Simulated assay, not measured.
Amino acid sequence: MTLADTVTDVDAFARDWENWHETLEEGRRAPHGFLAYAGFHVLGAEPRRFDGVPGAWSTGEGGPVVELADGETLVIGGTPVTGRHEYGVIGERTFHSADHVTPEHGHVVVELSRRGGQDIVRPLRPDHVLRVGYRGTPAYAPDPRWVIEAVFEREQPRDIPISAAIPEITHTHSTPGRVRFTVDGASYALTLISRGPRVATLLFRDATSGVTTYAASRTLAVPLPDDSSDRVVLDFNRATNLQCAYTDYSPCPLAPPENHLPFAVEAGEKIPLDRTS
């Protein structure tokens, strides 16, 4: 059911949404936010060098390793590092960063992470064209009718495979259950992805996908109730784009097939004005 009738001050509702969206946009414009990604490199057993990144990188059973040549330095955890540095095995969806400064690009952050069982390196350059030229993300005007009450159907947490925007990667995420809600008299149940004991993510597609909104998926944060309740609120006005809507350098998880809605969710963020490959 919609909660539109409970919104008594539409202007305040709109201002709250505008403040939320501007905060989101400010985060995107950060010097080392995801708009600064300038590459995506999957590590293998053979050491490889990547454009704009110091060292030769590899990975194996012992985890990622970087071999820095004479004259090359990375700052890791505030400490300058030269020669060989072993990271050890890193966990899934954990992130490690190293810093270096170049005359061409200024302060560059080298991000190391593990996604879908693969160790990857991505440089973040504040002067990257996508970040420097970012014009913002359009969105539908906030509308209380897209604030929908739903039922949280708890399940025993279980892992499910989730496809990624980069084909060679498949994510594994835990689901705490589903949300069930009604739109125009029809019932829908969508799978959630756990983000902690009291919050989940809803990845979904709908009839606007590829038309006015990003084709692959959008995402919505869903606060979960405690054990005394099964009620949740889905505010689709706060549906946002995934990083992969802006860059090919992000292996975002995509909506599972059961989360494809047959109607148009005309709320939340639209297709970004800018994108890089």
Rank of each mutant, 00 (worst) to 15 (best):
P142N: 09
V147Q: 01
T175W: 09
D127M: 05
P144A: 09
I162K: 08
A186M: 06
T182R: 05
I166F: 13
G177E: 01
Y140G: 04
A186S: 15
I160T: 09
V151C: 10
P161W: 13
A164W: 08
G185D: 10
W146C: 08
P161A: 12
P167V: 02
Y188R: 08
P138T: 05
Y140I: 06
L124Y: 09
V183Y: 00
R135N: 12
L130N: 02
V183P: 03
R135F: 02
T191K: 07
F152L: 15
D184R: 11
A164Q: 09
P138E: 04
T175C: 12
A139S: 13
Q118W: 09
G177I: 01
L192I: 02
A150G: 12
I148Q: 00
G177N: 06
D119M: 04
G117L: 01
S187M: 08
L192N: 07
T170E: 15
T170D: 13
A186H: 14
I193T: 07
L192F: 03
A189W: 04
S163M: 13
Y188D: 07
G136P: 10
S187E: 14
Y134N: 09
H171P: 10
A150D: 12
P123G: 01
I148Y: 04
T170W: 07
T172Y: 12
Q118V: 13
H173R: 15
T182N: 06
V183I: 15
E153Y: 07
L192Q: 06
P176W: 10
P157Q: 07
V179H: 12
S194Y: 02
I162R: 02
E149G: 15
V132K: 04
I120M: 11
I160C: 01
G177R: 09
A150M: 09
T175M: 08
A150I: 07
R135K: 12
A164F: 06
A139E: 07
V147N: 01
P167G: 10
Y188H: 14
D143M: 02
P157I: 05
I169V: 14
V121N: 14
T182A: 13
A164G: 11
E168D: 12
P157R: 06
P126V: 01
Y188E: 10
V179W: 14
R125T: 06
Y188N: 03
S174W: 00
S194K: 11
G177S: 06
R131H: 03
R154L: 00
P138Y: 04
A150V: 02
P126C: 04
L124M: 07
R145D: 12
P157C: 03
I166Y: 15
I162L: 15
D119S: 10
V151W: 03
I120K: 10
P123D: 00
R145F: 00
H128Q: 11
I120L: 14
A150K: 04
T137N: 01
S163E: 15
R131P: 01
V129I: 11
A186D: 14
A189L: 04
Q156E: 15
T182I: 13
P157G: 03
A141D: 15
D119G: 00
P123R: 00
A165I: 14
P167Q: 10
V151F: 09
A141C: 01
E168T: 12
R131V: 00
T191Q: 13
Y188Q: 04
P167A: 10
T175D: 08
P126D: 02
